[in-house]
């Protein structure tokens, strides 16, 4: 692999994967702490009907209306989940299951009916993403990384994810204190006049934004994995929320890079000529990170716990 092919073909994909992982991974910390891990799962599923509707309404595969549609679908589903949970007095998981399966089913039917299936909209695409298709043909050398006019030719999905990531970092930085408070003790937050519902809703809105921005490039399964695995890994490594956020960010980016290389180079190293799904591989690597942490984390790993019990 020479520098130019790396820059032209691998670099944009790595950038996409890592950016998607980073944004979702940061927000995932609060989902995991609030026992809402599966909110990421539910939201990534309801993105499908949203984009199909966005397509049907505007008739274009332009990303903005489709993202708007997805965002609206995500918010509707969150409202519906809350409604079912309260009226049916069922656990949040069951309410989520009802909503996201139904909305996904609606998306599938809409897709079949609308003929949108022909224009690069299909279910498999929504699940698996299309990480490898990102290219940066204008790049001619590493010097281009510093030249704005050539950087501007990076795929639009990269720019979009970069902007969304900035928004996520700003959100977490500005509302760090509030997020921490409502995740730990929502009732107390309410007595302070810091509405736990408002902060919780803002978090879900950001999750929806992250999921919608990332899914087109990396697919919803990677989005789900990134909401959970880096945060869960970090949760096992530390008892400080700040440290946890940094670790999760590191794990997310490392999964993005290592996963991509494992997918691109792994088979060649094994001497077989094939390409495997990069998005899938990134999620698998994130899962491996978490497995290692579950077993070997200094204090909360299974081995450390066993040793403690024996003493």
């Amino acid at each position: 692999m020479d520098a130019i092919t790396f820059l032209q073909f691998d670099f944009p994909s790595i950038l996409l994967g890592s950016l998607a992982a980073l944004g979702c991974g940061l927000l995932g910390n609060f989902l995991v702490l609030r026992r809402q891990s599966l909110m990421g799962d539910a939201i990534s599923h309801v993105v499908l009907p949203g984009i199909v509707l966005g397509f049907l309404v505007t008739g274009t595969v332009d990303s903005l209306p489709m993202m708007l549609g997805a965002g609206v679908a995500a918010l509707i589903s969150v409202g519906l989940i809350e409604l079912i949970r309260r009226l049916g007095r069922v656990e949040p998981g069951a309410a989520m299951g009802v909503v996201f399966t139904s909305m996904f089913a609606a998306g599938v039917l809409l897709l079949e009916q609308s003929g949108a299936g022909g224009v690069h909209l299909d279910v498999e695409h929504a699940l698996y993403g299309n990480l490898e298709s990102a290219v940066w043909l204008e790049a001619t050398g590493f010097g281009d990384l510093l030249r704005p006019e050539i950087l501007a030719d990076l795929p639009v999905s990269v720019t979009r994810l970069a902007v969304v990531n900035l928004a996520i970092v700003a959100f977490v930085a500005l509302l760090y204190k509030e997020l921490k408070l409502v995740s730990f003790d929502p009732l107390f937050a309410d007595t302070l006049g810091i509405s736990s519902r408002l902060v919780g809703t803002l978090l879900i809105v950001m999750v929806a934004v992250a999921a919608v921005a990332a899914f087109d490039a990396v697919g919803s399964i990677l989005v789900i994995a990134m909401f959970i695995c880096p945060a869960a890994t970090a949760r096992l490594m530390t008892d400080r929320l700040g440290t946890q956020l940094w670790i999760s960010a590191g794990v997310a980016v490392a999964s993005g890079i290592l996963g991509y290389f494992a997918a691109a180079l792994g088979p060649q190293l094994l001497g077989v000529d094939m390409s495997v799904s990069a998005a899938g591989m990134i999620a698998v690597v994130a899962g491996l990170f978490q497995t290692v942490a579950m077993l070997l984390a200094p204090r909360y790993g299974v081995l450390a716990r066993r040793r403690l019990q024996r003493v």
Binding site: R35, I221, I224, A279, I282, Q290
Partner: peptide
Amino acid sequence: TRLTEDTAIGTVLSTFFALGMV
């Protein structure tokens, strides 16, 4: 582990499915 069931479910569903994709 100290992880809760929802996190466990999310981990398993995403990594197993990703493995299937690979």
